[in-house]
Amino acid sequence: MKLAAYIEGIGLLGPGLAGWKAGENMLRGESSYQPQKTVLPPPSSLPAAERRRSGALVKLALAVGLEAIEAAGLNPADLPTVFSSSGADGENCHAICEMLAASDRQISPTRFHNSVHNTAAGYWGIATGSMKNSSVLCAFDASFCAALLEAVAQVVVDNTRTVMLACDTPYPEPLFKARPIPEAFGLAFVFSPEKSASALARISIELTEDKADSMEGQFEALRASIPAARGLPMLQAIAMRKDTRVVLDYLDATRLALQISHP
């Protein structure tokens, strides 16, 4: 079975990368890339109560996921999702661990429900009304490719459009030292089994042991330091509108080879 899908929409948010349009120009080298703190938009798609309770990971996921779906001209309520994050909501995790180490261990209900790895998927359902399947994965530094493989397998096997989101946010100290993710970074794709008018690119995936591609300059620093940014070489190939082969870091010597073409 050929593992291939069409990309109909892209969402991107990271340090100095405010959306796919701006990022595309930078990845193509048409404008210069200046890293700066990631700006997370308020999650206006959530009801007021959930908006107050949502952390950085939820805001990031909603921003990139909805950007990709809007670009594809689709309704998020109709779409299944695959979420991945290498560590879920780090601020919330720190707050809980701090409270549990103190004498008063009464963590709040909101803290607790925000502690699950699928917190972004849960808020996503509330924001979009989608009752479709939502898978939530983690593979440490390999989280991007774990989600990519799961999403494209779903597109092909179940013959369905699927939204894939890979999002990471930093831990505060002292966990930051143990897991130094420097900035919030998120990527999202809408994949489709069939070519449509909105198709931006076609990707075909296989497992390989070939060496993974690295990038130039600031983009390489970003790619190497944030798991969700392991997908940047794929984005750059799409931005360049060049038919090419890209190898992404996955698990140890197991990597993903992507053949990218432009319909």
Partner: peptide, 11 residues
């Protein structure tokens, strides 16, 4: 093992 792998974490 060297095939695909992931933790599934949906509570």
């Amino acid at each position: 093992l060297a095939g695909p792998a992931a933790a599934v974490s949906s509570a």
